[in-house]
Nucleic acid binder design. Structure first.
Length: 166
DNA sequence: AAACGGCAAAATG
DNA sequence: CATTTTGCCGTTT
């Protein structure tokens, strides 16, 4: 499978992990599932690292401001299953300020009944904020959950001008 | 093989 | 309405 994360970059308040394929994981302070920063050998840094790092910083900045990032860095989603990657790709199509229900996302990936599985996939999203798992809400008008803490979800949606959730 | 979710729709009071 | 089943599906143990 994919090699474990090669290198970690601290930038501002988050920690970005890059593999040779691109950005593999983003961790924010209150993210629950953070592991030990795996130090990468400075020798074999991913080729595009310098560029990716800059792009990532800009993209996160814009995303946190509630705007659509002009450009995203290359993403390495190899860690996920085929199903999860489909879901994550689908999430990327949801514009800022908009939301979809877990059911709608399930339909988007062609598995209308795999609603709970979609929930799981969202929770497994390795690149929060840039892959907008926070724009997925429950059908009953509620927020649904959020692995990094529901407050983040509220905050992100609020930043996108989405009233009624915060 | 069984249990577990960031769910949803139907049934029930 | 608010709660409680019941059905579903990919992951994880």
């Amino acid at each position: 499978m994919m090699k474990e994360t090669l290198t970690g970059i601290r930038a501002g308040s988050y920690l970005a992990y890059f593999s040779e394929q691109g950005l593999a994981r983003l961790e924010f302070p209150s993210d629950r599932r953070n592991r030990k920063p795996a130090e990468g050998a400075t020798a074999d840094l991913p080729p595009g690292l310098c560029r990716w790092r800059a792009i990532t910083r800009k993209a996160v900045e814009q995303a946190l401001a509630g705007r659509k990032p002009a450009v995203l860095p290359a993403l390495d989603l190899a860690a996920g299953s085929a199903f999860q990657r489909e879901v994550w790709k689908a999430l990327l199509t949801i514009p800022p300020g908009q939301t979809r229900t877990y059911a709608q996302v399930a339909a988007l990936v062609g598995r209308p009944k795999a609603v709970r599985a979609v929930g799981q996939a969202c929770g497994a999203n390795p690149i929060p904020v840039l892959i907008p798992c926070h724009r997925v809400v429950s059908s009953d008008g509620g927020l649904g959950g959020f692995s990094a803490g529901i407050e983040w979800k509220k905050r992100l949606l609020a930043a996108e001008g989405r009233a009624g959730f915060g």
